[in-house]
Design a protein around this nucleic acid. Structure first.
Lengths: 224, 224
DNA sequence: TCAAAAAGTCAAAAAGTGGTCAAGTTCCTA
DNA sequence: TAGGAACTTGACCACTTTTTGACTTTTTGA
């Protein structure tokens, strides 16, 4: 199946040029001309996003931040200006690389290919699980929200991993205990409660969002 | 078995184009040109519905609300206009996504595929029971009327589940007690009466309908 | 028409559940 | 092996659910 590339730019000329070129190169190309279109286009699950920084209405950087809430694929900025400052901001909002205008099509496709390759590698090796901008690296046992590390302890990480792998399902404390501590491990007595509290604190601290929901009388559920 | 897609639009040109394209992609396509046709078409149990918002006679949004009374499959709006306001209203009436006209066939099929995939995932796990627009998710133990959550407590949910599973049958309070609390559990003394009252209140609040009927001297019955 | 039985309502007591905290224990590392 | 981090425990509080019993309303049949 062909890689899907989403092009976000308001200049029709450019988007047409790019999309036809990328299609020739064997990619599937999708175009969005504004923020709204972009967000709804994320449903096609693009493998890579080309994002123009200079757009009317909404800033590309701002848009990037929004995209990152839902998606982990590489995001490459298309931009005229590029200072060190820009670069730092770009990375902060979750961008992966810059391509400065004007660029040759050859250069563009080379970069696109490189990032897809890299993404492919990271996909098979460490295994990354992502949920609303939260990136969990199972190989390194780390958890980041953008640049921010969560610093989960071992037990905490295990619990998060278990809940994320089974997102949207409800588990009572006993089931979580079994899953994380191992079967026929004795008792719970509230350890989970305490761990959940710690995890929630760290998640809140880093992301400002609620990930773990309490279903009264039933248990906990990871909201995807 | 091919996915069934229902296309609701009054422009013959468009519906023919769409249906032939979707058929080429391996889907089964059905067309409805107005509200009446749509409602009767629901009997084929479509897996996904493409719904034009701008139709004469009846508003697409209104129609969507009616469809949702009977059906849980994804509903995608086809629309020219699209503001934040539209989006919110669309979601309130039970829509799942928007596709703005004009759109490419490629984009359309991508979105259709994405939603079918998503729906497939949620289908295999939880098991959904539906009764007159009331959707009960056994896995999550939630109960919705369209968008409105019922917020049943555990005991309440158990009772509703039992009655719904055995719809149209009459059970006296003792039988319900046995079924929900477990056999040779002692006494009833009116607990059921109270729970039934709570459930009725919540059902009434959310749906405006009566689901639980009292058969005097005999017990209660869930009206399907 | 009236009284008894059945069903419905209400408020308050009882039981159960989850969140928080502080203190204890274990484990690991320097 | 001392110190600190991670893990566990139990007690407490706040809150929700469940149950109870007294009371009212409705229905039925003599």
């Amino acid at each position: 199946m062909a890689y899907k590339i989403l092009i976000v730019d308001d200049e029709k000329m450019l988007t047409e040029l790019l999309s036809s070129h990328l299609q020739k190169c064997g990619y599937e190309a999708f175009v969005a001309e504004n923020a709204q279109q972009t967000i709804s286009m994320l449903n096609v699950y693009p493998d890579l996003i080309l994002l123009d920084i200079n757009m009317p209405e909404i800033d590309g950087l701002e848009l990037c931040k929004m995209i990152r809430q839902n998606v982990v694929c590489p995001i490459l900025f298309l931009t005229a200006r590029i200072t060190e400052q820009d670069k730092i901001i770009g990375l902060q909002v979750g961008g992966d690389d810059y391509i400065t205008k004007p660029f040759s099509l050859k250069e563009l496709t080379a970069r696109v290919a490189a990032h897809l390759r890299r993404d492919e590698r990271s996909k098979c090796a460490p295994k990354i699980v992502s949920s609303q901008g939260l990136i969990v690296n199972l190989a390194e046992r780390t958890c980041f929200y953008g640049e921010k590390p969560l610093n989960l302890s071992n037990r905490e990480f295990d619990i998060v991993e278990f809940l994320m792998r089974n997102a949207n399902q409800i588990f009572d404390r006993e089931r979580i205990y079994e899953a994380v501590w191992g079967l026929n491990a004795e008792g719970d007595s509230g350890v989970i409660k305490e761990h959940i509290r710690k995890i929630r604190n760290k998640l809140k601290e880093a992301t400002g969002r609620e990930y773990i929901e309490t279903v009264w009388g039933m248990g906990y559920r990871w909201k995807k």
